[in-house]
């Protein structure tokens, strides 16, 4: 049994941490698309930026450590779109399966 002070993992201000890693990367096309989907869907009122953040926070610390920024973003965008009823989990599952069957790289599974 462990108690908690209620502080959530994402609330990082003042915590002990190491040197700031200064390496940077260019955004891949799929990451730019995730960003665009978030902006467009929130702009159309399907969810809010706070809804996106809520889903990111609820994914937990393990997701923060294991997955990249836009990996977490597409998961959070999807969570909000499912909650908004834009598509069903069955539709998503079937489409992801179909996408996987198209090829082995991101370039291969996209049209054009």
């Amino acid at each position: 049994m462990t108690d908690t002070d209620g502080r959530r993992w994402h609330d990082m201000g003042g915590q002990t941490a190491g040197p700031v890693p200064l390496d940077e990367h260019d955004h891949a096309l799929w990451e730019k698309r995730v960003d665009a989907l978030m902006v467009l869907c929130s702009g159309k009122g399907l969810f809010t930026v706070d809804g996106l953040r809520r889903a990111l926070e609820d994914m937990g610390e393990d997701a923060f450590e294991r997955h990249s920024y836009y990996e977490r973003w597409i998961a959070a965008v999807n969570q909000n779109l499912v909650e908004a009823g834009v598509y069903t989990l069955a539709e998503l599952g079937a489409r992801m399966h179909e996408v996987a069957a198209r090829g082995e790289t991101y370039a291969q599974v996209n049209d054009g």
């Binding site: 989907l37 997955h67 990996e71 999807n78 489409r95």
Partner: peptide, 15 residues
């Protein structure tokens, strides 16, 4: 291709 990339393609196509 990763799980998350498949999700991005699928979400985009459904939208």
């Amino acid at each position: 291709l990763t799980y998350w990339q498949r999700m991005e393609v699928a979400v985009r196509e459904l939208l």
